[in-house]
Write a protein that binds this DNA or RNA. Structure first.
Length: 575
DNA sequence: GCTATGGATAGCCTAGCATCCCAATGCTA
């Protein structure tokens, strides 16, 4: 599959052209990079089948870019890109990840100070070489250092949403081996933590050699750290590490429990075992030297007087106590979700039409999909104004009447993701909001306000009688932007009082509310909604990441409003 | 460089904000 590689090349090509001050071309390249990211068919295959003309049928690809793709497929390079890269040979990916660093600054810093990567940048900023440059001053230098610190803090961890699909692919491949009797992923991936350090697989096999041979020769393996018959360790092309362990069948459950963690959870379970004069380790539960459990996790937990605990909550944050008191709730599950209330269409910055989004939602078994396009304050994403909202309404009504004729039990709802302006007002007039099925409000600007100000700003939006949902409450972007400071307790009290729903945004970079805040919201009795925030029909499936965080936040079906069927949901929104 | 319109040429990705430097630039949504 060449799509992702090419997408990256075109993204960088766009950045290089911006450095050169070229107009419009960067936009063309960025656009095509985005298209390639979600293109289902491999461009390599497309080219192989029908050549250049077929490439030109891809949206955003014309003669020039088709030639570029051809060149890349044939030689593994695009000369135009290599030439620009040679001129400014910097680690673009690394530098651009620092908030406040863009093409122009990267160029100047390379030309004046030979800054090529994060390390160079930090060194220069710390020795105050940047502030003395023309066009830079102390404040920029300080911002750069803060940006670097943030990037570093999240370094070495990968987004669950990026890792999980790959993990599943690899798991499926390993499963096809007849030598693999049982397999599971363990560690933080199994606990569905928002970011993941590395990936652990556990396997039961009578022929470990074969399994290991296969594992270390997976196509994306770039480095083999170690290879044995019980453990092998590799690094993948995308930078994350993977371990595979082969364990005896009789210890599979205890090994899975042990390697799933968390460490804190395991310390507790071991102590409990000890208090019962038992020993718990990765090989099993032992009384004296005799193994009394180990084959399955359920048996391991049972042997020490507990019951099986869902991996997502194994953090020693009260799960043990809950089990002992018989009060472990029944957590929400993906199949409980009946619809999605935050999605975008081509009316704003979405990549799929309303109809395509609806069909995709329908095929997921949903009963409804809320289209909530951006509104006018966000010019760049073609945010809708009052007039376009009412035009969009007509399109939605037309599609809904089609569904009705087909007897499909499915409906599109019209929402909008409005913007909370800096004083807490919204960018759409009340009369227009009243006509929508529901209203989402979110902060999309001025992230650096003081804690008290942001809190007041959000609470004012909560008090707006038209607002139903507050989107991505803290505004964080994993690995990129810190959450803005808010007084969560104050906001939770307001949300409860005004019956406003808080969103659990499932987008892998957001996952906002996060697990901790979800749990606090639940404890405060605030209702939540799990939304995908998808900008493409293929991303509706992101909902599973939101559900996972909800589970980590101890959420039950009743806490989440989009577990309700359409009629009940609408009644709730009206109330 | 791509797309749409009309067969070569126009239009596209804008506006607010911070920073730097006191009008302009670069970054971000």
């Amino acid at each position: 599959m060449f799509n992702q590689e090419l997408s990256k090349v075109f993204h960088e090509l766009a950045t290089y052209l911006k450095m050169e001050g070229v107009a419009f071309k960067p936009y063309a390249y960025s656009k095509v990079a985005l298209v390639l990211e979600t293109l289902e068919e491999d461009v390599g295959e497309i080219y192989k089948k029908e050549g250049l003309t077929a490439l030109e049928k891809i949206p955003g690809v014309g003669k020039g870019i088709a030639k570029g793709i051809e060149e890349y497929l044939k030689t593994g390079k695009i000369k135009h890109y290599e030439k620009l890269k040679k001129k400014i040979p910097v680690n673009l990916e690394e530098l651009i990840a620092v908030e406040g660093m863009g093409p122009k600054k990267i160029k100047v810093l390379y030309q004046k100070l030979k800054i090529r990567n994060l390390k160079d940048l930090e060194k220069a900023a710390k020795s105050h070489k940047i502030a003395s440059l023309f066009g830079f001053e102390e404040k920029t230098e300080k911002n750069i250092l803060e940006g670097i610190a943030f990037v570093k803090r999240s370094k070495g961890r990968f987004l669950l949403g990026n890792i999980l699909p790959k993990v599943r692919e690899i798991e499926a491949e390993l499963k096809t081996l007849k030598e693999v009797k049982q397999i599971s992923v363990a560690g933080s991936v199994r606990r569905m933590r928002e970011t993941v350090g590395d990936v652990d697989f556990l396997v039961v096999s009578k022929n470990p050699q074969k399994v290991m041979d296969f594992f270390v020769s997976l196509p994306d393996v770039v480095k083999i750290w170690s290879k044995g018959t019980t453990r092998s360790s590799v690094r993948m092309k995308d930078g994350f590490g993977m371990d595979l362990r082969v364990v005896p069948e009789k210890s599979y459950g205890s090994a899975l429990q042990y390697f799933t963690g968390s460490k804190e959870h395991n310390i507790r379970t071991r102590r409990i075992a000890m208090s019962k004069r038992l020993k718990l380790n990765e090989y099993g539960v032992f009384r004296n030297k005799k193994q009394i459990a180990g084959k399955t996790e359920a048996k391991v937990y049972k042997a020490i007087g507990l019951c099986w605990i869902p991996p997502e909550i194994r953090e020693n944050k009260g799960e043990i106590e809950a089990v002992l008191e018989g009060k472990l709730p029944k957590f929400i599950d993906c199949k409980d979700i009946r619809g999605d209330l935050h999605s975008h269409s081509t009316w704003s910055d979405g990549k799929s039409s309303i109809s395509e989004m609806a069909e995709a939602a329908k095929s997921m078994g949903y009963g409804y999909l809320g289209i909530s396009d951006h509104t006018k304050f966000l010019k760049m994403v073609h945010g809708l104004n009052e007039r376009r909202l009412s035009l969009q309404r007509k399109e939605i009504e037309k599609l809904n009447s089609k569904f009705k004729k087909q007897n499909a039990r499915f409906r599109i709802l019209q929402g909008a993701e409005t913007n909370i302006l800096d004083k807490g007002t919204l960018d759409i007039k009340d009369q227009a909001l009243e006509k929508l099925d529901y209203v989402i409000a979110g902060v999309h600007s001025k992230f650096k306000m003081k804690k008290r100000e942001v809190t007041e700003r959000i609470i004012r939006a909560i008090k707006n009688p038209n607002v139903d949902i507050i989107a991505h409450l803290t505004g964080r972007l994993l690995k990129h932007r810190e959450a803005y400071q808010i007084d969560l307790d104050k906001i939770l009290r307001a949300a409860k009082e005004y019956n406003v729903i808080l969103e659990i945004n499932s987008f892998p970079e957001r996952l906002d509310l996060n697990d901790k805040n979800i749990r606090r919201a639940k404890e405060a009795g605030v209702k939540m909604v799990i939304n995908s925030d998808s900008h493409h029909k293929d991303y509706l499936g992101y909902i599973e990441f939101g559900v996972a965080q909800a589970r980590r936040g101890w959420v039950e079906k009743k806490d989440i409003i989009n577990t309700r069927p359409l009629a009940k949901l609408l009644t709730f929104l009206k109330s």
